[in-house]
Amino acid sequence: MAILSDEQMRFLAIHSISMSRVFDASGMKRSVYQAAMRELSMTIAIGVSPCNAGGHTMKTRSGHCPQCGTHNLAFLLRHDEDGYVYVADSKQSGIVKIGTAGDVRTRITTLNNWGYGGVSDWRVHYHIACAKAGKVEFKAQSLLQSYRISRTYLKGGNTVDCQELFACSASMATESVQKAVDQIMPSKRLAELSKAKVAGVAKPEAVRQPNQKIAIQIKGPVYIRELAQLMGIKAHHVVQDLLKMKIHLLLDQEVSRQTAEKICKKRGFVLKT
């Protein structure tokens, strides 16, 4: 498990990178942690091999050292983009998470599939469409700094550390997000976003809560890529499910409706004709 140095903490603060964008890649191969970071929309990896120039142990998900070249962060940060800032909570553990997402439904599904922070019952307590979503997220988390906790979970045989979770009520986390919005977003812009769906963002009501089944409709055989898209997951996850069923197929091949139904059921979806 990697521990951030004072220098690294200062670097993250200067560039307004919240801990929810930092991924503990200790013991992982580069290809493994980069794939995980893309799926979870992480920006910075820690616990990686030192860079040649300065011996820094942080990397972007593109594999570059952000401390040697801050230009490597420009494309990844995108703090001024519109999106959703959400508060997720876990009834089982009593902890909360503040994050950003373009598609809240997919993000919560991913968190639960990963058992993120050792929790698999994440649910959305609050979400709001924001301009400068990354800055709102960072500010909201900084307001809860005294409640920050660290938890670990296992992924691919490696222990992953999560440092952006909070031991407070979901209501308190929601209040911190609302305060951050008031400080960062102009009221006029907030009104515009509240009336319209953010471009490319899934509707908030589509978020799946724990134990709530989402219906997927297909009429017959379906391509693996299409099935994955319907469930909001990566296509290779469907291939992994098939391998566990001793079915060997490629991404551009079809699965029968009966097989698709088994995969959907495993992942909490209901298949309709």
Results as ranks from 00 to 15, higher is better:
C65I: 15
L143A: 06
G115E: 07
Q92C: 11
K97A: 01
T152F: 06
V104F: 13
L73V: 09
I108R: 04
K155W: 13
C130I: 14
Q145H: 01
M58N: 02
A74G: 09
I149G: 02
M185R: 02
I95H: 09
V198P: 00
T110W: 07
R123T: 12
G83D: 04
E175N: 10
K188Q: 12
Y126W: 14
L77C: 03
G94V: 10
S150G: 14
Y116V: 03
R105S: 05
L73S: 11
R123K: 14
A173C: 06
R107W: 08
D121N: 14
T60K: 03
G99H: 02
Q163W: 04
G63K: 08
A140R: 02
G157A: 08
D89A: 03
K91R: 07
V104S: 03
S142D: 01
L77T: 05
Y116L: 09
L76Q: 11
L165G: 12
I108A: 07
A167G: 05
A170C: 13
H64K: 15
I98D: 04
S90M: 11
N158V: 14
C68M: 14
S187I: 11
N158W: 04
K91D: 12
H64Y: 15
S146G: 02
R105L: 05
L143G: 02
V87C: 09
G200A: 07
L190V: 12
A74Y: 11
L77R: 01
A173Q: 03
L193Q: 06
T100V: 14
K179P: 01
R105Y: 08
A129N: 06
L144E: 03
V96G: 06
V160K: 06
A88Q: 01
S169A: 05
G83T: 09
A167I: 04
Q163C: 03
D80I: 00
T159H: 05
